[in-house]
Amino acid sequence: MRKLIRTSRRAWVGAWMVLCAVGIAATAGLNAASAPDPHPEEPVSAECAEYIADIETQLAKARREGADDGVLAFSRSKVGADDCSDEVLEHFGGDR
């Protein structure tokens, strides 16, 4: 029967520490390599830019009047109007 080589606990702990450090370094390297490129800002249509400016004006008015409770409702009832929901969300940080 083969005789097993006895190793100390320090050697096992050291080996696990080295393996963990290598794993963490590899994970950090892979995460850095796969980071998505920032998306360039796409041009906003004139109608959406006007709508966003209107929202900012109304928000500023609400702040001046002291009604800045964080809740404002906006609606668009024009037929055939551009759908500016994506642009509004991106402008006001809807991805948070």
Rank of each mutant, 00 (worst) to 15 (best):
K3A: 07
K3Y: 01
L4T: 07
L4N: 14
L4A: 14
L4Q: 12
I5A: 05
I5V: 09
I5L: 10
T7N: 04
T7W: 08
S8T: 15
R9P: 00
R9A: 12
R10E: 09
R10W: 08
R10M: 06
R10Q: 07
A11M: 07
A11G: 02
W12L: 14
W12E: 13
V13S: 01
V13Y: 02
G14P: 02
G14C: 09
A15T: 10
W16M: 13
M17D: 09
M17Q: 13
V18S: 15
L19M: 07
L19T: 03
C20E: 09
C20T: 15
C20H: 11
A21M: 11
V22H: 06
V22E: 05
V22A: 15
G23M: 03
G23K: 04
I24K: 02
A25Y: 04
A26K: 03
A26I: 10
T27H: 11
T27C: 07
A28I: 03
A28Y: 08
G29K: 02
N31T: 11
N31A: 13
N31C: 12
A32G: 05
A33L: 04
S34V: 12
A35W: 04
A35D: 09
A35N: 12
A35Q: 08
D37I: 13
D37S: 09
P38D: 06
H39A: 06
H39L: 15
H39D: 10
P40Y: 08
P40I: 11
P40V: 14
E41A: 15
E42I: 12
P43A: 13
V44K: 06
V44I: 15
V44S: 03
V44A: 02
S45P: 05
S45V: 00
A46F: 12
A46R: 07
E47F: 02
E47N: 00
C48R: 03
C48V: 09
C48P: 02
C48D: 02
A49L: 06
E50W: 04
Y51G: 01
I52M: 04
D54T: 10
D54H: 12
D54I: 01
I55P: 00
I55S: 06
E56R: 14
E56L: 06
T57D: 14
Q58D: 10
L59R: 01
A60M: 09
K61I: 13
A62I: 07
E65V: 06
E65L: 05
G66I: 09
G66C: 04
D68R: 00
D68S: 09
D69V: 03
G70V: 00
G70W: 00
V71P: 00
L72P: 00
A73F: 10
A73S: 15
F74L: 07
F74M: 01
S75N: 14
S77Q: 01
S77E: 10
S77T: 15
S77H: 07
S77V: 03
V79Q: 10
G80A: 05
A81C: 02
A81L: 00
A81H: 13
A81M: 01
D83Q: 00
D83N: 15
C84M: 01
C84N: 00
S85K: 13
S85V: 12
S85P: 00
S85T: 13
S85E: 11
D86Y: 15
V88W: 08
L89Q: 11
E90V: 01
H91T: 08
F92K: 05
G94K: 07
D95Y: 12
D95M: 08
R96N: 05
